[in-house]
C-alpha cells in the first residue's frame, strides 16, 4: 500500500500529544533546575543534569515541613493497595451473593448497593468521620483506607461479569461437587481474572489520588500520603521550593504508571485469549 501520509491527522495527533505531555515535561525539566529560576519564570525546557541529585535528597530527607518522600510514597502505596484489594474483595463477595444465591430481599440488597452509586464520597464524609472517630480510628493507618473499600461501581461491574458466566458451567460445577466457596475460588475468580486485573488498575489509581479523606482523618504527619505531602510543600508564602515540589510530583507519578504498565500487559493478555 503506497498511500499519501495524512498530514492533517498527524497534526491533530501531534497537537494532542503536546497538550498532554508538555505539562508533565515541564515538571520533569523544572525539577532539575533552581527554584529561583522557576519563580522568576526562567523555566528552561531542557532538564539540567546537575539538578538530578535533588531527587535523592528529596526522597531521603524531604524538604522543610514535610516527611521524606520515600515515607509518603510508602504510605500512599500501602493505602492504594489496601483500597484496591479491599474494594475488589468486598465487591466480588457481594456480587457473588447477588448473582448466585437466592435469598430473601436479594433484589432489595442489590438495589441498595446500586443506589449508593448516586451518593458521592463528599456527601457522607461527615458521618463517616464520626463513625471512624467512635471506632478510635482517627490518625491510624486503618482509618485511612477502611471507609474507602466499599464500592457500588465495582460490585455492579462484577455482577455483570458473573451474570455472563454460563448457567451450564455453574451446573457442571455443582455436579462435580464444588461447594459455594470452592466454586468461587476455583471457577469464578480465575474466569474473571482479566476483569479483576483491569479493575485493580483503576482502583489503585483511585486510591493513590485520594485527597479529601486522608486530609480529614489523618493529621499526624507520619501518615501523610504523597498527595497530601505535595500540597503541604506548596506553602502559602512565596518561599516554596518549586524544584523540590516538582521532583516530588515526578516521583508521585511513578507508582501508578508502573501499576498501569505492569497490569496492562496482564489484563490485555487475559482479554485477548479470554473466552467464556
Amino acid at each position: 500500500m503506497n498511500r499519501k501520509p495524512d498530514y492533517l491527522t498527524h497534526a491533530v495527533l501531534a497537537l494532542g500529544v503536546v497538550l498532554f505531555a508538555l505539562p508533565v515535561w515541564l515538571v520533569l525539566a523544572g525539577s532539575t533546575q533552581e527554584s529561583e529560576a522557576i519563580t522568576r519564570g526562567d523555566l528552561s525546557l531542557i532538564p539540567h543534569l546537575s539538578g538530578l541529585p535533588r531527587y535523592w535528597q528529596v526522597l531521603t530527607e524531604g524538604t522543610r515541613g514535610a516527611e521524606p518522600v520515600w515515607h509518603m510514597l510508602a504510605i500512599s502505596s500501602a493505602m492504594a493497595l489496601c483500597i484496591a484489594l479491599g474494594k475488589i474483595t468486598i465487591s466480588i463477595l457481594s456480587a457473588y451473593a447477588v448473582v448466585f444465591f437466592r435469598f430473601p430481599l436479594r433484589k432489595l440488597a442489590f438495589w441498595s448497593i446500586f443506589v449508593t452509586l448516586m451518593l458521592p464520597v463528599e456527601v457522607r464524609i461527615i458521618p463517616t468521620y464520626s463513625v471512624m472517630a467512635q471506632f478510635g480510628l482517627i490518625n491510624t493507618f486503618t482509618g485511612l483506607w477502611v471507609p474507602l473499600i466499599a464500592s457500588a461501581t465495582a460490585t455492579l461491574l462484577f455482577r455483570q461479569v458473573f451474570v455472563a458466566i454460563p448457567d451450564e458451567l455453574v451446573e457442571a460445577a455443582r455436579m462435580d461437587g464444588a461447594g459455594p466457596l470452592r466454586f468461587l475460588r476455583d471457577i469464578v475468580i480465575p474466569v474473571s481474572g482479566a476483569n479483576i486485573a483491569a479493575l485493580f488498575v483503576i482502583l489503585f489509581v483511585y486510591g493513590w489520588n485520594q485527597y479529601l479523606w486522608p486530609l480529614l482523618v489523618a493529621t499526624d504527619p507520619s501518615l501523610d500520603t504523597i498527595v497530601i505531602g505535595l500540597v503541604k510543600m506548596i506553602g502559602i508564602d512565596s518561599d516554596t521550593d518549586w524544584a523540590a515540589v516538582m521532583a516530588t510530583a515526578v516521583m508521585a507519578l511513578l507508582p501508578p504508571v508502573a501499576v498501569v504498565v505492569l497490569m496492562q500487559r496482564w489484563f490485555v493478555a487475559g482479554l485477548t485469549e479470554g473466552e467464556k
Binding site: 451450564e168 458451567l169 451446573e171 457442571a172 460445577a173 461437587g177 464444588a178 471457577i187 474466569v191
Partner: peptide
C-alpha cells in the same frame, strides 16, 4: 439429594468445560 451426592454424571449441550 444434592446433585453431587447422587452418583450421576451429566454431559451438557454447550460442553460446560472450565475454560481456565
Amino acid at each position: 439429594l444434592d446433585p453431587s451426592a447422587r452418583d450421576i454424571a451429566m454431559v451438557f449441550q454447550n460442553y460446560a468445560l472450565y475454560p481456565h
